[in-house]
Write a protein that binds this DNA or RNA. Sequence first.
DNA 1: AAAACGGGGCA
DNA 2: TGCCCAGTTTT
Length: 352
Amino acid sequence: MPDRPDNPQAALIAAAAPFRAALLDWYRRHARVLPWRNAPSLYKTVVSEFMLQQTQVKTVLPYFARWIAALPDFAALAAAPEAQVLKLWEGLGYYSRARNLHKLARALAPLPEPPRRPEEWLSLPGIGPYTAAAITSINFGAHAAVVDGNVVRILARLSADGTPYRDSSTAAKTFAPLASALLNTAAPGDHNQAMMELGATLCLRRKPLCLTCPVRTLCACHSRGLEPENYPRLAPRQIEKLTVARAWCVKNGKLLLHRTPAKSRRLAHLYELPSAEQLGTRAGDFFGTTAKPLLTKKRGITRYQITENIFAAEAPEPLPADLEWIALDELEAITLSGPHRRWVRELLRATP
DNA sequence: AAAACGGGGCA
DNA sequence: TGCCCAGTTTT
């Protein structure tokens, strides 16, 4: 691509020094007080980064406190049974993160010391480019720039980049060189955290607080009078609608649940209300009858918009694979996904 | 009810 | 590269 005299990205790189200084100064005065920033440790960084992978800070806070209290270091996590790990994660969602974190602790255990370079972390479970850069820059001062959704948003606005991106991962890849060029190698961890802090607290998706932005004078949107809300341009996602029929089956003080196999791609080793298919019943047998669902819930998850209908049902005989009877007074001890946990509580209150 | 937010794994 | 993961919060 030929250089244009008004290339805002080149201008930004030329102004890297004042950018870094203004950003770091702002961060050191305005950084939120977060538990993984107090008495920081590699373990706290790793746990918080896993929890923050697809979840916002506010949601993570109570889970992080509970987790650190129960499993205070890598050794405790490596020694913990999987059931405890999943239970501590219950409600956070995307449970492969918990399983990967557990695997990570066990992978680190035999090493004399944890790796210090991002490339080494990349081969560990649950670690991608973002997490590798975050962990090694924060804990070891590695010269690795993070590129998460916050950083993409900031860089697209700073450079007034109106390129339409197919998805967020394409955008992240495109902005990686610019993020690296701007990295403050004297304080990579704080620089990276400052970028994400700026994105999370000021350079917001829809209502950016430009008046208080420490780098607005270096922002191409600001100097050109462009609306930052329009940057970056990301293609809208395709949504697929799905309907699931589930069974509510209580007998002799026990609830019938499906336990997802350990190797399953989703909800591995978690319990859920059995779907019609898992019960060995065609969904049509539920929908075809005049029976009305006990409960109907809608939820959006990844690329799906799912309507969940929960029907009263009889247990099949014999019991199909992966179905288990769980005593009602032991339900709190097992791990369900957040929505399933709420539905079970709601239905137990409604049908005592 | 719909949109926003959001990294890694895997074929 | 393209699809999947099976969630919460905000608007």
